[in-house]
């Protein structure tokens, strides 16, 4: 079941440094929302506030509200561990667990959460690997270490690992930045399939990618180096790329930036 995210007045700090300020937006369920913007404007920071990974960084602090289907992630008594089970994440660099086999990597979320039936495990692993378009490449070597795969395969392994725990929302931080065009295409196709089941948020520096995969696009910017990043606008992807309402967005998209 995909869920809607409602962010209002969100500000995040690293120690005393304010990285993003006063961000409000809605992320629709069963859709792909892309975040674009110049380097350092706080896209990753914002993404990490959506599953409470921001506070894992030392000094990380958040103000404001993030509603996941009407429940505030930062409300009283909310367990960040449960939040992360509902809101999964794929990182920029593939990071499979080096001590585990391909199978164990995908099974890790279920196993380490202790919430699985033994008989279902291999079924879930197969389903997740198929979901991540990796099954055919690895089905003969599920017991080999995950770090023996190519970069693109490793990234798809990480996606399989993330979707194996059936999150409601999937956050992806530049998932294709280390990949070749073919793997990138595979992952973009995958995103298209995954949005049937999940709410997907993807950070990307690649305009064409944002245009290809996303339904809505959010543009972030920062006034100057050292200033906090802000949300400039969020709209239907087609509108953002054809006829944005803010001049800065058009400048950024057409490469007339800075």
């Amino acid at each position: 079941m995909a869920k809607r995210i409602d962010v209002s007045g969100l500000t995040a700090y690293y120690g005393s440094h304010k990285a993003i300020e006063d961000i409000s937006m809605t992320v629709e369920p069963r859709s792909v929302t892309a975040f674009i913007g110049p380097s350092g404007c706080g896209k990753s920071t914002f993404l990490r506030t959506l599953n409470r990974m921001h506070e894992v960084t030392s000094g990380g602090r958040v103000e404001g509200k993030v509603l996941l289907d009407d429940e505030d992630l930062y409300g009283q008594g909310i367990d960040p561990v449960s939040v992360r089970r509902e809101v999964g994440m794929v990182f920029q660099r593939p990071n499979p667990f080096p001590t585990m086999s391909i199978f164990d990597n995908v099974a890790a979320g279920l196993r380490l959460n202790g919430s699985y039936k033994k008989s279902e495990l291999s079924e879930v692993v197969e389903k997740s690997l198929k979901g991540a378009n990796l099954w055919n490449e690895v089905k003969d070597r599920l017991n080999k270490p995950g770090s023996g795969l190519s970069g693109g395969q490793q990234q798809r392994l990480c996606i399989a690992r993330a979707i194996a725990v059936e999150p409601k929302v999937l956050l992806m931080d530049e998932p294709c930045s280390a990949l070749d065009p073919i793997s990138t295409l595979a992952i973009e196709d995958l995103i298209g399939e995954l949005k049937e089941r999940f709410t997907i948020v993807i950070v990307t520096h690649n305009m064409q990618q944002a245009a290809r995969v996303s339904d809505r696009t959010a543009f972030f910017n920062l006034a100057a180096v050292g200033q906090p990043g802000k949300l400039i606008e969020i709209d239907e992807t087609e509108r953002i790329f054809s006829n944005p309402s803010v001049q800065a967005t058009e400048d950024y998209i057409s490469g007339r930036f800075g």
Partner: peptide, 12 residues
């Protein structure tokens, strides 16, 4: 990254 990968899976 490994710690974050694990935490992001909802592992305590």
């Amino acid at each position: 990254e490994l710690r974050e990968a694990s935490l992001a899976l909802g592992i305590p």
